[in-house]
Design a protein around this nucleic acid. Structure first.
Lengths: 180, 180
DNA sequence: GCAAATTAATGATTTATTCAAG
DNA sequence: CTTGAATAAATCATTAATTTGC
């Protein structure tokens, strides 16, 4: 599992698959980490702009497309729910391990929304160039609760504190994602 | 965009919604007709290129986006099946009127695929710019079986035999859609 | 130790369901 | 009530883990 983990600083870039067959996307450990952190920060269904921005920045870690980000969130969301279902046999309805909160399917808590800037169920599947009022909200707030902060920090440092990115290309970056 | 489309010759432009609120897409009668004909010709899940091309040409009849075409086929496919379900009450499981073939959910008959140039389960949801061998196949073959030909012809004439399109913009058009 | 075979994860599509505009 | 739009559930397909026989 933690296979390509060390890839980051050990020099071996894990899954970039530089000259691969262009099969399916194989995310880098760093990409997965960032996506996971975003997810755990509450982001469930990123908007078009969010996806494109996330994709753009994750491309620094390896080949990636917008649709990969879209699919990743879809799958991750669906599978987290399913994994909870089959704990301790078919019975036992209302039980979670302390791993995550409930994160119910319908709408995620407004707090998390506020943190991550979710679209609140208004996703235009990428082709909507529809102009609309776009506020901006900081995706990675410095303030966050305990353990999450560590992850957020590590992600931040990975994204912007690494030699992967030219200082020229991603310099004054604070990754603000727009939402409705 | 050309909004003064002024619609069909009947004067009553059905749904162009020239200065509308940009609510949801309201297809023109001609647009619906073409889409329906395509559907009845066997096209179920048009590919990216097909969608874009269809959309491009249907835009001559009024405001339209690619996603509208995409959604239209999704909904039409799903609802045709559902409409069959509630014929003659809740009972009655396996019954079709002679309107269409079975058109089972999984994969449509290869014949229809050949006619319509379906992607055979390989649809890249619009964002895949992946280069691949794209053969071209005529979407509206002159040859077709009996009743369908009439519809196909009518559609052809509407699309290309009308004054809607400038001869300059769509002149040597034969609408070949690419598929895998 | 190493590949072929098998299983587990998970990326990518398709289908069903739901929401809401008209 | 019809239907465009959007989301979630189910499914397919490919890649990585892993097992297994040599």
């Amino acid at each position: 599992m933690g296979e390509g983990e060390r890839a980051a600083e050990s020099g071996g870039f894990s899954a970039t698959r530089a000259g691969a067959k262009c099969g399916r996307w194989n995310p880098t450990a760093e990409q997965v980490k960032v996506l996971t952190d975003l997810f755990r920060s509450g982001l469930r269904t990123p908007s078009t702009d969010q996806i494109q921005m996330i994709s753009a920045h994750l491309s620094a870690f390896g080949k990636i497309e917008s649709k990969n980000v879209f699919y990743w969130f879809q799958n991750h969301k669906a599978r987290e729910r399913h994994h909870k279902k089959r704990r301790r046999g078919p019975r036992d309805e209302e039980d979670d391990d302390g791993d995550h909160q409930k994160a119910r399917s319908r709408c995620l808590a407004s707090e998390l929304c506020a943190i991550a800037g979710c679209t609140k169920g208004k996703q235009d599947l990428f082709w909507q160039r529809q102009e609309r009022e776009t506020e901006t909200l900081e995706l990675f707030p410095l303030k966050s609760c305990s353990s999450d902060e560590e992850k957020v920090m590590s992600m931040r440092s990975e994204l912007w504190g690494r030699p992967f990115l030219d200082a020229a290309r991603d310099p004054p970056l604070d990754l603000r994602l727009s939402f409705i």
